[in-house]
Nucleic acid binder design. Structure first.
Lengths: 142, 142
DNA sequence: CTACGTGTTCGAGCGCACTCTAAGTCAAGA
DNA sequence: TCTTGACTTAGAGTGCGCTCGAACACGTAG
């Protein structure tokens, strides 16, 4: 599989695939006689895994750490597992936070929903907004 | 309340507060005789609201849009509500996605957990990783 | 033979959201 | 009076994760 095909299948762009290889997120790919990358379908498994780490907010530097542990092979399983478990905890915490925000958002939206008559502008309970006075450079003489 | 105090109470830095004012996320604050910002406690309500939008992944440009609608006052409630509702949907979708990733992560971690004997290296099922051969600039003569 | 499409490398550029620096101002306490 | 420290401004710099451009190399179809 050439890079264009892999791009299509993985959802990454060819640019991004090369970038990932450059930084070490993807292994250095085999090249054909004319130096073109030729991929085995199994690379998709790894890319999908990286995608999940990315979706869940793991920074590239941590994915890199995981990739390096994997490169070192056996003897690093405990560390890899620990890394994943720490990440899982942070994702769970984030999901909790998002759910709390969703509740608050429901309340806020509920405020807008309340009888258009009785509550013309729910936001009026928040402070009045002012703009920067143009021209006048504040009270200072400068 | 001076900017230092607001920074402490809001969790933002004074730098960030000034930056938010500059871009229009925070209203232009009243200044005392010596041009220093003097805040009313009510600003905290707005900052907390912005914090929730930020936590849930809303880009600043959208918060700005909301802030501008609020500035325009009544007549914009429907649009503000719609903006929030669209955002709520995207947050819900993201939470679903995160939960799906959490399931996959559980499976992955479960793989590491499986009897250390039978599965020395679960990752061995993934493609072998290679490194870029140093020196040798591929087969090409250049 | 030539044109085209797809690939290659290196390195610069971008959008986002801050984060920090420099140089100056001011009020209050020793 | 002097010093300290919290503030002011405009503007430059940072870190992240891509994203793009330029110039060149192949292989195949017409």
């Amino acid at each position: 599989m050439k890079i264009g095909e892999l791009a299509k299948r993985s959802g990454l762009t060819a640019h991004t695939i090369r970038y990932y290889e450059r930084i070490g997120l993807l292994p250095y790919a085999d090249r054909d006689r004319s130096s073109r990358r030729d991929y085995d379908a199994s690379i998709l498994v790894w890319i999908e895994f990286l995608g999940r780490l990315k979706t869940t907010g793991m920074p590239i530097r941590d994915m890199l750490l995981y990739a390096e542990l994997r490169d070192r092979g056996s003897g690093t399983e405990a560390e890899r597992r620990a890394l994943l478990e720490r990440h899982r905890e942070s994702v769970r915490a984030h999901v909790d936070e998002l759910n709390a925000c969703l509740l608050a958002l429901d309340t806020k939206i509920g405020g807008y929903a309340e009888t258009e008559q009785r509550m013309k502008d729910y936001d009026a309970t928040l402070p009045e907004r002012r703009r920067k006075p143009v021209g006048a450079r504040s009270a200072r003489t400068r």
